[in-house]
Design a protein around this nucleic acid. Structure first.
Lengths: 182, 182
DNA sequence: TGATCTATGTATAAGTC
DNA sequence: TGACTTATACATAGATC
């Protein structure tokens, strides 16, 4: 797609690499946007340059929703994962740690009893839902916060409402990453 | 890029939409791959079709690493978020919930005291590190497990019938979904 | 870095099987 | 659904400012 055919391998020249990065990154984000619009799909894209700058696009609202949507279609599969994930994410009680420990140490995941974790989950369910709601609320606010900053700092073009983030030197919160943090 | 110019708006015809989705989705994933290789960047891409199938690509390892990498460049920014995230993710104690509550209810994120959350975090630090290690270990194993299932996708037996993404060329990137689970 | 400008290489809309 | 084919529309490498 240029004067010459380009092999797909790391571009050694630093400045060409940077230029290509800018061009292709923008192209990729635009393609992602088009796909989501044309085909009514949810798309989330994260790009981190070698220098550590984060750029992203996400159709609709946020990754949490995208994965929720996915989850609804794969309830059974996700259930096991989710149970374990929840238990491990939110279980800070010593009892939980001990139980998890007894279940997992030296064992293969395939043999871990999901049921045991389901029980743990129930104990944490209430606290979990509250915590989750708070977290979601916080994340959404942080995202809004970032968007404001982006708009103020970068004069985002008015033609497209892409949720992309030339997150460059923004120096406060970086909400986009929150839903992904573990 | 075809016989006719296509407007970027939802394709109404269902089968064209499906065909376009397949083509563009593959194209997008390929572009993402190229970008990561050419420019030595970390890229994570998630696509969920309208019917709920998940397709993904991620350069290197997983999003956690991608964001870690990002995080190293923005330690200060991430610190605040991380504190909050940790506190909210792992805080299941009632005391924590109450404290979080008193700090967040009705408040604007900008005014939330990070310091308060930092204190909470310290209380959970020990349990957290253990939990995290367990979780990571578990996730990695689960990923392997899912990959196997995906690879054996066509002869799924009595066990939970799962309609995973037509893993095709991206089968080794499923893990990207796990770190995102909430 | 960031636009702009071409010449070219690619992606892909339609159509066919 | 794919797998091809073909004609076009797009993306972008390289160069310049």
């Amino acid at each position: 797609m240029g004067r010459k055919k380009l092999e797909i391998k790391r571009i050694e020249n630093k400045s060409s690499r940077q230029v290509t990065f800018s061009k292709r990154r923008n192209g990729l984000i635009e393609k992602a946007r088009q796909l989501s619009v044309l085909c009514d799909a949810s798309v989330a894209l994260l790009v981190v340059s070698a220098s550590g700058k984060l750029y992203s696009f996400s159709s609709g609202d946020n990754l949490v929703k995208i994965l929720d949507r996915y989850g609804k279609q794969h309830a059974d599969d996700l259930k096991a994962l989710d149970h374990q994930s929840k238990a491990l994410n939110y279980g800070s009680h010593y009892e939980l740690l001990e139980l998890v420990d007894s279940k997992l140490v030296g064992s293969n995941v395939k043999n871990v009893s999901i049921d045991a974790l389901v029980q743990l989950e129930e104990h944490l369910e209430t606290a979990l839902s509250v915590t989750r709601a708070k977290k979601t609320e916080l994340m959404l606010k942080l995202v809004e916060n970032l968007k404001e900053k982006m708009e103020n700092n970068h004069h985002v073009g008015a033609e497209a409402e892409m949720e992309m983030s030339p997150a460059g030197q923004i120096s406060d919160n970086l909400p986009v990453t929150l839903p992904l943090l573990n």
